[in-house]
Amino acid sequence: MTEPRVSVVITAYNAAEYLSAAIESVLAQSHPADDVVVVDDGSTDASAAVAQSYAHRGVRLIRQDNQGPGAARNRGIRETSGELVAFLDGDDLWLPNKLERQLAYLVAHPETVMVSCLRWRWDQTTGERHIEYFGVPPGRILAHENVVRNVIGNPSMTLIRRSVFDAVGMFDTQLRWGQDWDLFIRIASYGPVGFVEEPLMIYRWHPGGISHHRGIERLDMFQSIACRGIARIQPAWRRPLLLARRLSWDQCDRAAYASQVGLSRARRVWHAALGLALFPFERPVSKTKRLLRSIFGDDSYAAVGRRLRSVVYRPIGEREGLERF
């Protein structure tokens, strides 16, 4: 049986510092892509020149005025022809077997319309790396879980059948943030989504990434996307519970953001308390910790945690004074 052709769409906006490594990670795949395009979304740095330097290795450069990542990905979809489409943000990386593992999954599961994976998160400021997990526990319905929060990941993690775009549409260019989550909600409602349960890409976090700007507006947009997705869930009786869970997640995210940017204690506590009260049955320990952090502050909370750990893990004979702590 002839394997389906794979097209790769790399999108870049002022990503010259990272783009070469991203392109190299695509060209180093154990299963080569059949078509690779870089869509430069109006960069003002050397991103286009970096992409053009790979023309002799079959990489095509497409330039357009700045229209946002959704429009850039849509342009890449239209400019390619493979039956399968993979995306890579210009500041992310693929591990060498990403396409091979995901292509094998889709061939083995012809009913699946999209496959995702786990990912490494690499903080470019601290060097810290850890694996981030996606998907849903057994027994949960992915289409329902995915309207509460994005459990599929980002476009760099996916391989999608081109026919899906004809059925559900492409990225919504009217959305400043969350275009990928909005599309994934539509795809999960359309057909089965699979996962390769291993990290196949590296998400390179850095302060210049678009996903880290204008936090309150971004959270508002995410909430709007979630509510729109919940409104389409069938049967309708599931919607109130999903909405309560989503509102809880949203308030916890707002509490974390308020702490991150140094907003007032009252605001931090308000969001954290709402997050716990709206749905205390999911992640109760995590939500309680967030509330305590909001009340006492991250530094005081961390200091108490260190003190407790030092007492708890002290040998039995050295624990005098525990009652006084």
Score class of each variant (00 low, 15 high):
residue 102 Q to W: 08
residue 104 A to Q: 08
residue 105 Y to C: 09
residue 105 Y to A: 13
residue 106 L to Y: 08
residue 110 P to F: 10
residue 112 T to W: 04
residue 112 T to F: 10
residue 114 M to S: 13
residue 114 M to T: 12
residue 115 V to R: 13
residue 119 R to D: 14
residue 121 R to I: 15
residue 122 W to R: 09
residue 123 D to K: 09
residue 123 D to V: 14
residue 126 T to M: 10
residue 127 G to H: 04
residue 129 R to A: 09
residue 132 E to N: 01
residue 133 Y to V: 13
residue 137 P to T: 04
residue 139 G to H: 01
residue 140 R to K: 05
residue 140 R to H: 04
residue 140 R to Q: 03
residue 141 I to Y: 00
residue 142 L to T: 00
residue 150 N to S: 07
residue 152 I to V: 15
residue 153 G to F: 09
residue 153 G to C: 07
residue 153 G to K: 05
residue 154 N to H: 14
residue 154 N to T: 15
residue 155 P to T: 11
residue 156 S to E: 08
residue 158 T to C: 15
residue 159 L to Y: 11
residue 161 R to T: 11
residue 162 R to G: 14
residue 162 R to K: 11
residue 163 S to N: 09
residue 164 V to M: 12
residue 169 G to I: 12
residue 170 M to I: 11
residue 175 L to F: 10
residue 175 L to W: 07
residue 175 L to P: 01
residue 177 W to E: 03
residue 178 G to V: 11
residue 178 G to A: 09
residue 179 Q to T: 09
residue 179 Q to I: 05
residue 182 D to T: 04
residue 183 L to V: 08
residue 184 F to S: 04
residue 186 R to E: 03
residue 187 I to Q: 01
residue 188 A to V: 00
residue 189 S to R: 12
residue 189 S to V: 07
residue 190 Y to K: 02
residue 190 Y to N: 04
residue 195 F to I: 01
residue 196 V to G: 03
residue 196 V to R: 01
residue 200 L to F: 07
residue 201 M to Q: 07
residue 201 M to E: 02
residue 202 I to Y: 03
residue 202 I to N: 04
residue 203 Y to G: 01
residue 204 R to P: 01
residue 206 H to L: 06
residue 207 P to W: 12
residue 208 G to L: 11
residue 208 G to V: 07
residue 215 G to N: 02
residue 216 I to L: 15
residue 217 E to F: 13
residue 217 E to K: 10
residue 218 R to W: 03
residue 219 L to W: 07
residue 219 L to R: 08
residue 222 F to T: 07
residue 224 S to K: 07
residue 225 I to V: 12
residue 225 I to M: 08
residue 227 C to W: 14
residue 227 C to Y: 14
residue 228 R to L: 10
residue 230 I to S: 02
residue 230 I to M: 10
residue 231 A to F: 10
residue 235 P to V: 15
residue 237 W to H: 15
residue 239 R to E: 12
residue 240 P to H: 10
residue 240 P to S: 14
residue 241 L to I: 11
residue 243 L to H: 02
residue 244 A to W: 10
residue 245 R to Q: 09
residue 247 L to V: 05
residue 250 D to W: 04
residue 250 D to N: 05
